[in-house]
Design a binder for these strands. Structure first.
Lengths: 112, 112
DNA sequence: TGTGATATGTAGGAGAACGAGGCATTCCTA
DNA sequence: TAGGAATGCCTCGTTCTCCTACATATCACA
């Protein structure tokens, strides 16, 4: 079971920012955490992950430094910039508003 | 306020199917209902609406007949096909699973 | 007459997601 | 010691969706 459902467009950036907000992580670990925390519901292919990270970095929402991982490899650790933090807050609120609205619609009964 | 937030990819089709499931409606009315019911949160531009309707029709999820509206105009009334109804159910469940997973992630506290 | 609401549609472009590929290192095991 | 799996980074090309802008037509009303 637990079919991998594709993420709606735009959602990936939000999730990435959220994970990064919890503390500096490198790309590979971001994908792993999203998968674990969501119990396999959210799965991020690398062909989506890295372009998204670069996108966020170009927009000035993330910044990165090369550091050594626990396993002794070099990896690019991302952190949220100030703008990124503001963006995360805004998008989280927006997401809540939207999903609530959609939830209402999906629960409509024919009783017009 | 009530900023118009863009819909995540794929969500539009889901919402359209849901509205159509409540009873036959024409395109223009679908957009209006979505806007009203969501208190302006969901707004569907015509350039998104009609392509989406054609898309759903081509996929065999919607079917349409020309009828007269309350206002005396000819309009294309859409209804769900059997496949459309199954698709709506599946996508609704998928949406619930996904938003729940995302909700969990967005509520994470740094306590790893 | 002209403006706003109703009603349908297309064209063009931007942007996101993803599959498929490539590359390098480390660790485990047969 | 050879091979594969896991870790870690990346890009290219395709596909799909969405949206701005535009085009069309009817009707009500001022």
């Amino acid at each position: 079971m637990t079919s991998k459902s594709d993420l709606p467009q735009g959602t990936l950036d939000l999730l990435i920012m959220k994970i990064v907000a919890l503390g500096p992580v490198h790309g590979y670990a971001i994908a792993q955490r999203l998968q674990q925390v969501s119990r396999e519901v959210v799965q991020v292919p690398q062909g989506s992950l890295y372009p998204a990270l670069h996108r966020l970095e170009n927009r000035g929402l993330l910044a990165a430094d090369w550091k050594e991982t626990d396993t002794g490899r070099e990896a690019k650790f991302y952190r949220l910039t100030r703008r990124g933090r503001a963006q995360l807050e805004a998008e989280t609120a927006s997401w809540a508003r939207l999903t609530e609205a959609i939830g209402v619609i999906l629960n409509l009964r024919e009783a017009k």
